[in-house]
């Protein structure tokens, strides 16, 4: 339901938030709708909408601020991400919940970027905006903004991989590279040695991430132990693999890294690829 606000003010400055730092909620990896509704009521969470600005302006989760994914990816550097967080009025340690309407992949990429610069109290909303609305939870159309806050940068190197890291991992028995793209794209070409776990495997059934039991079983079936480090990548900017990152974290895999520049960069660097050429599998697709 939409709030009945008929205020003519185009944007509201929200200052009524709880500022008692000792009361700050430590979010789980994935935030459920009950918890988020509760935190919104208490004014003690920053909700980040990563859809396009037009979509946000039309309607968004109550109290959400707008951060289109494209804006984050524009520079995609730690200092820019800090700038973004500060402008959204997010101080160190303040709970942040991110959502999208694209099965969680865009939100996951943004949430990961926050984590990367050290904002560990970031969670992914368990559902999409569309589902939130269907459930009859609170939305509004008035854009919200908050006063600027200071944020520090404390890079979390443990969750990041670049091309050279991936290359080194190819020969490491305790590291596994996972390609999050769909099967046919993977078969066509992929990073040598990478295993395929399409994003369609981690999501589904009304929730952006399947229950941990299922994902644990998928990992177990592949003979991957929970101590193995997993590096996820996808086609271009780390959205699909961002979702994989969260799914694996949620399922209890301790060390997960995102190769955020993904296969697009890998190819542009002219690194070797593995291809399956002996079958015309694309002709099986009814697309």
């Amino acid at each position: 339901m939409k709030s009945d606000s008929t205020s003519p003010i185009p944007s509201k400055e929200n200052s009524a938030e709880s500022s008692d730092d000792s009361q700050v909620t430590q979010l789980p990896i994935v935030c459920n709708v009950m918890l988020l509704s509760d935190l919104i009521k208490k004014n003690s969470v920053r909700v980040v909408d990563v859809r396009r600005e037009e979509e946000y302006n039309q309607e968004h989760i109550r109290s959400a601020v707008s951060l289109p994914l494209a804006k984050l990816l524009e520079h995609d550097s730690p200092t820019d991400t800090r700038e973004i967080l500060e402008n959204l009025g997010v101080g160190d340690g303040y709970p942040v919940v991110v959502y999208d309407d694209t099965f969680g992949a865009l939100a996951a990429r943004v949430a990961w970027s926050f984590q990367y610069i050290g904002h560990s109290n970031t969670a992914l909303l368990e559902t999409t905006f569309g589902q939130w609305k269907k459930m009859g939870l609170e939305t509004e159309s008035i854009p919200t903004s908050f006063s600027r806050k200071q944020h520090s940068v404390n890079i979390n190197h443990e969750i990041y991989a670049d091309a050279s890291y991936v290359q080194a991992a190819q020969n490491s028995p305790d590291k596994i590279i996972i390609d999050s793209r769909e099967r046919l794209n993977y078969l066509t070409e992929h990073i040598p040695g990478a295993k395929n776990m399409p994003y369609t495997m981690v999501g589904g059934n009304g929730s952006i991430i399947r229950n941990s039991e299922d994902i644990e079983r998928y990992i177990e079936n592949r003979g991957i132990s929970h101590d193995t480090e997993i590096i996820a990548y996808c086609g271009s900017v780390g959205t699909l693999s961002g979702l994989t990152y969260y799914a694996l974290k949620q399922a209890g895999v301790k060390n997960v890294r995102l190769y955020s520049k993904s296969f697009k960069e890998w190819k542009s660097l002219g690194k070797p690829k593995e291809e399956i050429n002996d079958a015309n599998y694309w002709d099986l697709s009814a697309e």
Partner: peptide
């Protein structure tokens, strides 16, 4: 349909 999306190529035959 769901199984083909999750584990196959998104089409069935």
């Amino acid at each position: 349909a769901s199984l083909s999306e999750a584990f196959s190529i998104g089409s069935a035959h």
